[in-house]
């Protein structure tokens, strides 16, 4: 769907050259929810802006459905942009337009007649569950509602891709979850390919299928969310998995085992069974789990007991199909 080849972007700031993105190649497949995660300043926003050429890459190619956008003419580029929706952290709604007029904006661009545009906009507002706010102005809406309007607006022209640039970073956790569910629904029901930029592992965990970890303009690793969550190979990946969250799991100065819940049923008392079956007295060093729609996500860090007990734990976790990782004591790496 979107293929980035050797993208580099440098900015000139007061005579200094700053490389925000360095030789990044990525392939986002049709129908997937692809996450790009990294700490702030990693270059992920610049990278996503290269996907619809809001930033012109200094070097490299951006292929959308096989067409090189860098080589496209300005009219051609505008037509491609209509197939690539985008939402932002700050929503970026037109403040002087009502909700429905905001959703109508992209429809005006394609020259749709007003009556048809309004009926299409109503349909979209139904999808994002805001039918009752049609005539409100953005200043009268909450953050979550504004982002829903932005989503409806981005979807108006039936895009094939939706780029989400820190779309939930300005929202509280509950609203974040609602907006993420909506994005997931759009992916499943409308078949829209989605690219999510975030600094929160939680977001990636909840909706992404694959993820790229970025640091200092470089993609350090790419893989399924499960792989990276279970066994992060890069330093940044490890930091994000272990403490990239506000509810972070502290790393320990003792040897530990990290037990990872990546969507197994939350109705199953896995942890209790682990203790009962192995008979090992487990010491929890930290935990961060969450129930998202009946599935358990997150991790529990336990102190690694002696080798015999650890073997029992390994056996049990393998049998139960729960991922884990044994970590050395901090500082003894």
């Amino acid at each position: 769907m979107i293929r980035l080849e050797n993208i580099t972007k440098t900015f000139k700031v007061k005579g200094n050259e700053i490389t925000a993105v360095k030789d990044v190649s990525l392939h986002i497949k049709k129908g997937e929810i692809f996450g790009i995660i990294g700490f702030s300043g990693a270059g992920k926003s610049t990278l996503v802006r290269c996907m619809n050429l809001l930033e012109l890459p200094t070097a490299g190619s951006v292929f959308f459905d096989g067409h090189d956008l860098v080589k496209a003419g300005s009219k051609e580029l505008r037509d491609y942009r209509k197939k690539i929706g985008m939402i932002f952290q700050q929503f970026n709604l037109l403040e002087q337009r009502t909700v429905i007029a905001n959703v109508c904006y992209p429809l005006e661009l394609i020259g749709l007649r007003k009556k048809e545009a309004v009926s299409r906009a109503r349909e979209l507002l139904r999808i994002v569950d805001l039918s009752d706010k049609e005539l409100s102005y953005p200043s009268q809406l909450s953050g979550g509602q504004k982002q829903r309007v932005a989503i409806a607006r981005a979807l108006a022209t039936n895009p094939e891709v939706l780029l989400c640039d820190e779309a939930t970073s300005a929202l509280d956790p509950l609203t974040t979850r609602g907006v993420l569910s909506l994005i997931e629904k759009i992916n499943k029901e409308l078949g829209v390919t989605i690219v999510v930029i975030t600094h929160e592992m939680k977001v990636v965990e909840q909706i992404c299928s694959r993820v790229a970890v970025m640091n200092k303009g470089v993609v350090e690793e790419t893989g399924t969310v499960k792989d990276i969550f279970l066994n992060p190979k890069s330093d940044t990946g490890r930091k994000l998995v272990l403490s990239g969250d506000d509810k972070s799991v502290p790393q320990s100065d003792k040897e530990t085992i990290r037990i990872v819940f990546d969507g197994i049923s939350s109705y199953e008392p896995v942890f209790a069974n682990l203790i009962l079956e192995t008979g090992v007295k487990l010491n929890i060093m930290g935990a961060n789990t969450e129930d998202i729609g009946g599935s358990a996500y997150g991790q529990i860090l336990i102190e690694r007991p002696d080798e015999a007990s650890t073997e029992l734990i390994r056996k049990y976790l393998n049998k139960a199909g729960v991922g884990f990782e044994e970590l050395p004591a901090l500082g003894k790496k």
């Binding site: 505008r78 942009r81 700050q90 970026n92 002087q96 337009r97 904006y105 005006e108 661009l109 022209t157």
Partner: peptide, 29 residues
């Protein structure tokens, strides 16, 4: 807001459309 202009660009607006529908319209008050 520069972000609103960026959003308009991302939706495939031409420069004229940005001038009429975003710059002048949003700056009305």
């Amino acid at each position: 807001d520069a972000g609103v202009i960026e959003a308009a660009k991302a939706m495939g607006s031409s420069d004229w459309q940005i001038i009429w529908k975003v710059l002048l319209a949003e700056a009305r008050p």
